[in-house]
Computed example of a mutant assay.
Amino acid sequence: MSNLNLLLKGLKKGKIVAYPTESVFGIGCDPDNLQAIQKLLWLKQRPISKGLILVASSYQQLLPYIDETQLTQAQLKKIHATWPGPITWTMPSSSLVSNLLSGQFNSIAVRVSNHPTVKKICCKFGKPLISTSANLTGQKPCIKSVDIKKQFGKKIFTILDEETGNQDKPSKIFDAKTFMQLR
């Protein structure tokens, strides 16, 4: 079984997986599996209040998680002009989104990736996945698979050991309504 097939099998079973993104390795899980999300938050030692990012291969994959009726056509046009790419937007969340994903906010952070591995995972998985930097809260994000093994040991189901992109910092985050940069 290829590593990609093993990763996809793990996602479907609620496992935590690691994969390269545009800048660093990400860890993630199925955004519709609440037990997997709780496990991810525990593993990363991340407060629920912060919320998480969803990464997708297309905008259509994000539609069940956002409420685009709260955005103007001009706002949507500006967002779409930055994708695919390393820009994350906080958009109004749909009523289906758990606070495990949105944290203390009424929005959800989303990105359409241009990283070939992320695109391939999301296409084959058929939906977005949670993407948070592969590191314990407060530690440096992992840029190599060996770093993930050092920080997390065997707590990650599988690591897709491929190259990260050429971005030197995690994605910038902007508010979809105000266009203010949040990170």
Rank of each mutant, 00 (worst) to 15 (best):
M1Q: 12
N5D: 15
N5E: 14
L11I: 11
K12E: 13
K15I: 04
I16A: 01
A18Q: 14
Y19W: 11
I27M: 15
D30Y: 09
D32W: 05
Q45E: 13
I48S: 02
I48R: 08
Q60W: 02
L62A: 08
Y65M: 00
D67T: 12
K77N: 14
T82C: 00
W83E: 07
W83Y: 14
P84C: 03
P86R: 12
W89C: 01
S94D: 08
S94I: 01
S95N: 10
L96M: 03
V97L: 05
L101I: 06
S102T: 10
Q104F: 02
F105R: 13
I108A: 00
A109D: 05
N114C: 02
T117V: 15
K119V: 09
I121S: 06
C122R: 04
K124E: 11
K127G: 01
K127D: 00
L129P: 00
I130M: 02
S131Q: 02
S131M: 03
S133P: 14
I143F: 11
I148N: 07
K149E: 08
K149R: 11
K150G: 02
K150M: 08
F152W: 09
K154C: 04
F157Y: 02
N166R: 11
D168V: 07
K169I: 14
S171G: 15
I173K: 15
A176H: 08
M180P: 09
Q181V: 14
L182T: 10
R183K: 15
R183N: 14
